[in-house]
Write a protein that binds this DNA or RNA. Structure first.
Lengths: 224, 224
DNA sequence: AATTAATTTTAGTCTTGTCTAAAAAAATAT
DNA sequence: ATATTTTTTTAGACAAGACTAAAATTAATT
């Protein structure tokens, strides 16, 4: 009978799994070595080393020069890390007075704490939240993630109204911009004008007109 | 002008500092290489390597063959880790339904999370607790630890009564034994008999007589 | 199809933190 | 005071995870 390894994955391995998971849901294709390297701020050669190791551990399938794909085990493991990350984010915002632009770095550390009881109790303590402070769905215990129907603000037509339900970028700078302009999850946004020259928008939020650059409109999700 | 390193100490370095801190308060003398090795379940040669590194970082003073002593910086750093450990223990017990014998391993991980805001907010959220679930004092922000006056149950005389205020050993087995016998922090214990042959005691807790071995009596603190 | 460009892998090195075995120093015993 | 035991340090090795530089493979162009 096998004894299950206590700390199944190292910190590094977990970060690779998470990165590959995110890249895979973005592209629906095999994930390339370079893409992983860029996401993790490391070098392609380091990635090659690690994905060989992860392939040995059966969390992904790897063919030389062909990128990687997560196995079911790999997906579940990654989803569990993301579950922990997002639950901690909820905790930080709801219980410890963090704002949504402050949580990422701390959650990045907390997501690696190993204790099933801890995360289940935290889930209960927070009343089983379904979304994190950025509107992202929290995977359940089994690694299933609810699919959120959404589109980018950029894709709304002139005159259309939508409710902000998420962000594509969780960087502090972006989130602070949104705060400054009174844009938050649940707020209504109406596109008044679309400027074809630079793809910027004039939108109305809570009665105020503001100008929104293409980059901003491309990182803000509106309910479908 | 110097830029202060963000993650000043590695996981290993923090564990060494904590171990040395605990050994130093126990013995009031210089801490020996072997003692550190035993505490950390490692080898003396590894300890020598690490204490040289920590001496370079000015957190301890090291003289070949003479053991080590923490500097003020070293003490503060260690106290801060212990502060985090104990605050997390309070959180786990008070908010997440952990029992006092379940918290140690998880707190051992959580104590290494780097975020001053996190720990200050946690402190406030828990209403600035002064003791952890095992009765140990929680260091303040500046690394000061309140000295708790106490003595071992073993040192009570026949007929003496005392209030249980702490444990010397936080192992799950010991704490479960205490639970089983209704011994908890704040409970009164009276020594009825002392058996000289094996140093065991007959004590009364909540009206019940129980027999306590020397080892138990040597790990239970009574208020002074 | 052949050449160039980009991506990926290999080979070899480095750092951190650990280990074993052997040497050196200190403590203890005779 | 000398011999023995214990403790501590040194020397050399190893694994994980990262890096650089060079080689191999695939993709893109002409």
């Amino acid at each position: 009978m096998y004894i299950c390894q206590k700390n199944m994955f190292t910190l590094s391995e977990e970060n690779y799994l998470k990165a590959i998971f995110h890249l895979a849901t973005d592209s629906k294709k095999g994930v390339s070595t370079n893409a992983i390297a860029e996401k993790l701020n490391t070098k392609a050669s380091s990635v090659t080393d690690m994905i060989q190791k992860l392939a040995d551990k059966k969390v992904l399938v790897y063919q030389k020069y062909q990128g990687v794909e997560l196995t079911e085990l790999g997906r579940k493991t990654a989803a569990n890390i993301i579950r922990k990350h997002r639950l901690w984010e909820v905790f930080l915002v709801e219980k410890l007075n963090f704002s949504w632009d402050e949580v990422h770095d701390v959650a990045e550390q907390l997501e690696h704490i190993k204790s099933p009881k801890l995360i289940n109790e935290l889930d209960a303590f927070l009343n089983y939240p379904k979304k994190d402070p950025h509107g992202d769905p929290i995977p359940d215990k089994n690694g299933n993630i609810q699919v959120v129907e959404k589109r980018l603000l950029h894709h709304l037509k002139e005159g259309e109204l939508g409710v902000c339900i998420g962000v594509n970028d969780s960087s502090s700078n972006f989130l602070k911009f949104l705060d400054k302009n009174n844009i938050a999850l649940g707020k209504q946004i109406r596109v008044l004008e679309k400027e074809p020259f630079d793809d910027s928008l004039i939108v109305e939020v809570e009665g105020k007109k503001i100008s929104i650059s293409h980059k901003i409109a491309n990182n803000l999700y509106i309910e479908k």
